[in-house]
Computed example of a mutant assay.
Amino acid sequence: MTVKTTSKIGFQHVGSFLRPDVLKQARQDYFNNQITQKELTTVENEAIKDLVNKEVAAGLDYATDGEFRRSYWHLDFFWGFEGIDHIHYGEGYHFAHEETRDDTAILSGHIKFNPETHPFIKDFEFLKLLTDNLDIEPKQTIPAPSQLYVELIRGTNDEKIKEFYPNINDLYLDIEKAYHDAILAFYDKGARVIQLDDCSWGLFLDEDFLNTPDGKAYANSGIQDILLELNNKAIENLPEDLTINTHVCRGNYHSDFAFSGGYGPVADTLFAKENVDTYFLEYDSKRAGNFEPLAKVSGDKKVVLGLITTKSGELEDRQEVINRIKEASQYLPLDRLWLSTQCGFASTEEGNVLTEQQEWAKLKLVKSIQDEVWG
């Protein structure tokens, strides 16, 4: 892959937006068998059209569909692969203060990507069609290959791995190929910016977890190298005009978080060796640690500082944000830094605890600080 970090990052949002009430109601009606898939799709289409128009009005250079057709930021994409089933695990993800719904992805065969059956391809086609007539570029967000692997080895899920992949290396190869094929399919439909969302590194950051026996075993398992290899192999040998970014955070569910800790424990792997163009990083609270690990970002790769939180509607102090950008520039030059929110506004359909008006006010603040600091 050719790293093109000298190109303009532009004003872009991480990905997800709060679902409008009409969309939430339609999804609930579909779940209750009160409307058809076609009727739900019509509501989704109208909501996405409205969102894209608002993104244009806000001055964004890149548009997402808000992840409006998804229930989760990651699982819906996994369920689109052949060889992966949607089941209820019996237990959700445990965040600091809440437990999520209990959906998960589990192996049912060998993993393959089929462009005819994976719904995200048609979803992107719709977004591309909308943006073709507007002054904005489409951006596709998908969970990282490493995130799929972490889901498949979650608890009892990994029992299926031995059944379908007695040689674990075959699983790695299938994940890498499925993702590579998917990325090329998006490219063929006109995608030129693809973002790999990745919470898989969070467990390495949390000292409370790392001090437990399970945490020590996890940290010493060599899994960082596996995650790195999965991500890098998936994005090898892609077209030179395709930008691959990654977004790394510590969990974002209903304004709650999953992990704490600075990026130090993963900097030598994630920052130094992952072959992406740009890192979108969570830096909206003291839980994220200091900026020192940014010195490990290799080559001319860039970092987008997620200094504006999506977990609260309260606006940040403008000067404090600017001061933190200057602080970060001690470790990475200012021309390799940029600004965004730390995550999306609704990583799951529940959404974070703020209003739509506050959501757009956050993005307005991001844009105004970008203009002041970078011109």
Rank of each mutant, 00 (worst) to 15 (best):
C343Q: 09
D241G: 03
F280S: 00
E274P: 02
V353M: 12
C343L: 06
R250A: 00
V366Q: 01
T355L: 02
I325L: 04
T246N: 01
K302H: 03
G264D: 15
K367R: 07
L354C: 05
G299L: 11
A234D: 08
S298V: 07
A295I: 09
L228Q: 13
Q319D: 15
R250V: 04
F345C: 07
D241H: 04
G344E: 10
S255L: 09
W360P: 09
Y263I: 04
A328V: 10
V321M: 10
Q357A: 13
E282M: 05
W338S: 09
T246R: 03
P293A: 10
S368V: 10
I235Y: 08
E292G: 08
N232T: 08
L339K: 00
E327M: 12
T243I: 15
D256Y: 08
K301P: 12
F345K: 11
L337H: 01
K326F: 15
T243E: 13
Y263W: 04
F291P: 10
P265C: 01
N252V: 06
L270F: 00
C343I: 09
I322L: 08
R250W: 07
W360E: 05
E229S: 15
G251N: 09
T310E: 06
S285L: 13
T278A: 07
C249K: 03
V266K: 05
R336D: 02
C249A: 03
N290T: 13
Q357F: 04
L339W: 07
R324P: 04
L307N: 01
E359R: 01
